[in-house]
């Protein structure tokens, strides 16, 4: 693989909930412009990893570097400000606020970002949001809410996008629409994306590389196509 700039480098990361070890010596790398899938079944530790990266949880051991800077013990708002955005598990809509207010919160920490310009770009990608901009976010359909969650995460022009369980509760057709939009965003805007997914098939289909977590440990990593052909992945995650 050609040497592109390192976005996220996680080394020897261990995270505990009290005595319970949720992540054990995890190593992970994401390079600029990559889409990396983070796979694993229920309770594998995907959300834990996402929440630790943005500082909602704290690592017991190990290091997280973002664009060469150590962010392991950094406050969440500083990490957000430095260019990481997250689409949290379960969409995390602020249901009583309007679509527009949700989008405005996407630039809460982002100085020097042209909100109106980015808004127009988002409305081009997801025209339905433009129509519904004055509607309460909770009244959108599940797929529309997911579009809003993504839009809110990208409106502040993040360098790295973390997505937790993007495909949750969406029909396969909708998952394709959303993944295609992401690919387009990556190609046009140069976003880097880390996708935490249970839906291994879809995730691998659209990503460059992947990691497989099991009980908090990385059990496999590699090229997305290779992983798709891997017998372990096929039996455990692709139901072959």
């Amino acid at each position: 693989m050609e040497q592109t700039e390192m976005m996220l480098k996680i080394s020897d990361l261990s995270v505990y909930y009290g005595p319970i070890c949720a992540l054990k010596k995890v190593d992970l790398e994401v390079r600029k412009g990559e889409i990396v899938a983070l796979l694993g079944s229920n309770g594998a530790g995907k959300s834990t990893l996402v929440n630790t990266i943005i500082g909602l949880l704290h690592a017991k051991r190990g290091k997280i570097e973002f664009m060469g800077r150590d962010i392991t013990r950094q406050k969440t708002e500083t990490t957000i400000q430095s260019g990481i955005s997250v689409v949290p598990e379960g969409r995390g809509m602020l249901a009583n606020m309007t679509v527009m207010e949700n989008l405005q919160l996407g630039v809460y920490r982002h100085k020097g970002v042209d909100f109106n310009k980015n808004l127009e770009m988002i409305f081009e990608y997801f025209p339905i949001l433009k129509e519904r901009q004055w509607q309460a976010a909770g009244t959108l359909s599940g797929g529309e809410q997911q579009m809003l969650a993504i839009s809110r995460a990208i409106v502040g022009e993040p360098k790295l996008l973390l997505m937790d369980e993007l495909s949750l509760a969406l029909s396969p057709a909708y998952v394709d629409i959303i993944f295609k939009a992401l690919i387009k965003l990556r190609n046009e805007k140069g976003f880097t994306i880390l996708l935490a997914e249970q839906n291994a098939k879809k995730a691998l289909q659209y990503s460059d590389r992947g990691y497989v977590l099991d009980l908090g440990e990385t059990v496999l990593e590699g090229d997305a196509r290779e992983l798709m052909g891997n017998p372990y992945v096929q039996t455990a995650y692709l139901g072959a």
């Binding site: 943005i54 909602l56 969440t76 708002e77 957000i80 400000q81 997250v86 949290p88 995390g92 602020l94 249901a95 009583n96 606020m97 207010e101 919160l105 996407g106 809460y108 920490r109 982002h110 809110r152």
Partner: peptide
């Protein structure tokens, strides 16, 4: 309002 709805969500938006 974000804090009222979901403090952790608010935090991950940078609040």
């Amino acid at each position: 309002e974000a804090i009222q709805t979901d403090p952790q969500m608010a935090q991950s938006l940078g609040v």
